[in-house]
Design a binder for these strands. Structure first.
Length: 638
RNA sequence: GCUGCCGUAGCUCAGUCGGUAGAGCAUACCCUUGGUAAGGGUAAGGUCGAUGGUUCGAUUCCAUUCGGCAGCACCA
């Protein structure tokens, strides 16, 4: 007797062992047809898994959130099967499901071409039509190794060989294709359906290690129905339209050129945006008890040796020398050692703590060429950096205050969804384990006290301490890691920072490294993409354009511009000899949030016709009222 | 850095099976003073990423190099 408990609490009893499919059939023919897999006591299993003992069981259908993962994993297998049929010399390696799709890495001497992708995709559709049953088999490890070696599948054999002996190996067979796989899988290739698409081709290292050979990775996306696929492809198009590199050019915000790879040329409009962000941040920091400093760009290597950066990041630092004498100055890749120098200047008492030292610190790092991406990943960048020097007892309250500030700032920029990751000790690190134990538990406790829900990001901490990483979600659902808070017991020791405690003893302060935006360059890139260039008035580089209909209104238009300018707005006049249609089209294209149109009527009545970006409507209002409205909207939030 | 792809006017792109290039938009000038998403005309604009090689001749073929794009690796 086997008793199966269904999610609604009902218990079904069977005389002997049954498969998941049997149970689904016993519930209803419709469910049996929709069934893709089962969840046994919470774990996802194949539909035809034999259930011999009592368990809790849920039938997984396309409606399940996790079912997409199965589908995508199947898509990867079907792709591998297609590739083996078309290119038998290609070796298969691994092919997992990923966010929005799947990939499979192949080893093959000749690179795949875009035409190959079309062929592979067509063959995948054939395999779906063949409706091949997908079945699981268990082999012994050594059997499996020699089997794959016999097939010439060296990578598979290597993978299996690295599994401990004695453990049975799960293999999945579909048609003539057989692959090592943990599973579970859909019952047949037909269940994959046709809502998939191969997307792109790229290199990827075997086992993710850059010392290993490069494999060919084929990416695809897969969904349960065509609507979802189309929606996803549409989202990609939308992301492309929002690309900050494209909008940066179109809106004349900045440019990049060969002579300064990885550094941004900010144009007047882009710089206006930057200055707004900076002014806003400065205000928020000042009101949160930070002091602002500025530290040198060129700092002798001795300081970086002392801090430990030289040893770990030497190859990523720019070095400056002088033609006169032998000097080795690093262009600062970060601000912390310099901040410690300011801290050390003069004796500090416990009364001085917490000392929150902020800098809009311009830093340079020699990022690998392949990492550069528009203004999001550059070699010259400016952090909204700060170091909080505090006592151990103050870690919690400082963490709470920081998290509140961060959330409030994100909200002002329009980001309300924020996730937090906790990154613990990396392999290569400074400081002994007792210090790490202390730092990790201090940070974890503080984040709990701040009411944060964190997910663990193992081994991803900084070399001097664990960190919290703040990830925000943008308007089209993409995640961006921006903020960080790091607890550091190491640098104060290395750079000999201390304070006089209440009892007169000399103690080490703790340093909290923290940033909210991360870097201005990257954050501005994120803002551009989040808003698709359509900034709220307070951020918009050009907030208002005053456009004339006839040249008789030129004088009045200039007057309107002057009024707005003296009220502190970023405003331009458009008195060109062009039709108002064209002016509206152009400034809309440039994403100016507000247009004030003036003709003879407005000039006579001292009004303006206000038109908002994205709206066809216009509102005739008195000039004074327009100025008051716009000034209010242009005020920095917070 | 690695793999693959790409580099033609300010932008988006066409083209040359090897005989030094063309469109639209943008720009300048002229006409037009028009009431809310692109009015008409004329003109100007390119050492075809750079260097070297093959060739009578290279933007085109080859090599090297620089830069860009995608992914991987990296990210104090």
């Amino acid at each position: 007797m086997v008793a199966i408990t269904l999610p609604d609490g009902n218990v079904r009893e069977f005389p002997g062992p049954v498969t998941g499919l049997d149970v689904a059939k016993s519930i209803g023919a419709g469910l049996a047809k929709a069934a893709l897999a089962i969840r046994v006591d919470g774990a996802m299993k194949d539909l035809n898994t034999v259930l011999a003992a009592d368990c809790r069981l849920a039938i997984v259908t396309a409606k399940d959130a996790d079912a997409l993962e199965l589908l995508r994993h199947d898509a990867a297998h079907v792709m591998a099967e297609a590739v083996k049929e078309l290119y038998p010399e290609a070796q298969v390696t691994i092919g997992p499901s990923i966010e929005n799709g799947f990939y499979y890495d192949f080893a093959r001497a000749t690179p795949f071409t875009p035409e190959d992708l079309e062929k592979i995709e067509a063959r995948m559709r054939e395999i779906v039509d063949r409706d091949e049953a997908i079945t699981r088999e268990e082999w012994s490890r050594d059997e499996a190794v020699s089997f794959f070696q016999g097939l010439g599948e060296a990578y598979k054999a290597e993978l299996i060989a690295s599994i401990p002996a004695g453990q049975p190996i799960g293999l999945y067979r579909q048609g003539a294709f057989i692959d090592l796989c943990r599973g579970p899988h859909l019952p047949s290739t037909a269940k994959l359906g046709k809502a998939f698409k191969l997307m792109k081709l790229a290199g990827a290292y075997w086992r993710g290690d850059s010392r290993n050979e490069m494999l060919q990775r084929v990416y695809g996306t897969a969904w349960f129905d065509k609507k979802d696929l189309d929606a996803y492809l549409h989202m990609l198009e939308e992301a492309e339209k929002r690309d900050h590199r494209r909008l940066g050019r179109e809106m004349d915000l900045f440019h990049l050129q060969e002579e300064a790879v990885g550094s941004v040329f900010w144009h007047p409009k882009g710089w206006a945006l930057w200055r707004t962000v900076e002014e806003y941040m400065r205000g928020r920091l000042e009101r949160s008890g930070y002091v602002e400093v500025k530290t040198p760009q060129l700092v002798d290597r001795k300081l970086w040796e002392a801090s430990g950066h030289w040893e770990k990041f030497r190859q990523a630092m720019f070095i400056a020398t002088s033609g006169e004498e032998e000097l080795e100055l690093a262009i600062k890749p970060m601000n912390c050692p310099c901040h410690v120098q300011i801290y050390r200047h003069g004796i500090k008492s416990y009364r001085d703590l917490p000392l929150r030292m902020a800098e809009f610190g311009s830093c340079h790092r020699y990022e690998p060429s392949g990492a550069l991406h528009g203004i999001m990943r550059v070699r010259a960048f400016t952090q909204d950096d700060a170091h909080i020097f505090c006592t151990e007892d103050q870690i919690t309250s400082e963490t709470i205050a920081f998290c509140e500030l961060l959330k409030s700032i994100y909200k002002d920029f329009g980001f309300t969804e924020v996730r937090v990751k906790f990154s613990d000790r990396p392999e290569k690190r400074a400081g002994d384990d007792s210090i790490w134990d202390k730092a990790e538990s201090a940070l974890l406790d503080a984040s709990k006290a701040a009411g944060l829900e964190t997910t663990l990001n193992p081994g991803e901490g900084a070399f001097y301490g664990p960190k919290l990483e703040f990830v925000l979600r943008d308007a089209i659902g993409r995640d961006w890691q921006c903020g960080t808070l790091q607890v550091d017991f190491v640098l104060p020791e290395r750079l000999d920072a201390s304070y006089a405690a209440e009892d007169g003893s000399k103690k080490r302060p703790v340093m909290l490294h923290r940033a909210i935006l991360g870097s201005f360059e990257r954050f501005i890139g994120i803002l551009i993409e989040n808003f698709a260039g359509r900034f709220p008035v307070w951020l918009a580089p050009t907030q208002v354009v005053v456009a004339t209909i006839v040249s008789d209104a030129d004088g009045y238009a200039q007057e309107v511009v002057e009024r707005l300018k003296s009220a502190g707005l970023r405003v331009e006049a458009d008195i060109r000899n062009e039709k108002i249609n064209k002016k509206v089209a152009e400034h809309s294209g440039l994403k100016v949030p507000v247009m004030l149109v003036v003709g003879r009527r407005e000039a006579d009545e001292r009004t303006v016709a206000m038109r908002r970006l994205g709206s066809q409507a216009q509102e005739i209002i008195a000039l004074d009222q327009a100025v008051a409205t716009l000034v209010a909207e242009a005020a920095l939030p917070g």
